[in-house]
């Protein structure tokens, strides 16, 4: 596709998607990089206590009105029981 060609997506949709992300970071003062560092630190702490699959973890920003929320979805590995003690 040519650099200046029209993409399939309408430009307003692109504007909206880009703005969504920008506003989250503006409101929380957290960059994409910082968010990923935080995610790794969180995973490290959690893995010390329970077994998790880092691939399955979803940590994301969402919002409720103008309030920002950090949402973490962290499935625990329960199939193999952790050894006690």
């Amino acid at each position: 596709m040519a650099a200046w060609g029209r993409s399939n997506r309408q430009s307003a949709d692109e504007a909206k998607e880009r703005l969504k992300l920008v506003l989250i970071h503006d409101r929380t003062d957290l960059s994409e990089d910082e968010l990923s560092i935080m995610k790794n630190e969180l995973l490290a702490v959690i893995s010390r206590h329970v077994e998790i699959d880092p691939e399955m973890v979803k940590i994301s920003m969402s919002h409720d009105g103008r309030e920002q929320k950090l949402t973490a979805d962290i499935p625990l590995k329960t199939a193999r029981r952790r050894k006690i003690g």
């Binding site: 309408q10 430009s11 307003a12 949709d13 504007a15 909206k16 703005l19």
Partner: peptide, 11 residues
């Protein structure tokens, strides 16, 4: 807006 090239008021 109708053409999809401007954010709508709803957006």
């Amino acid at each position: 807006t109708k053409r999809g090239d401007m954010l709508t008021p709803e957006d």
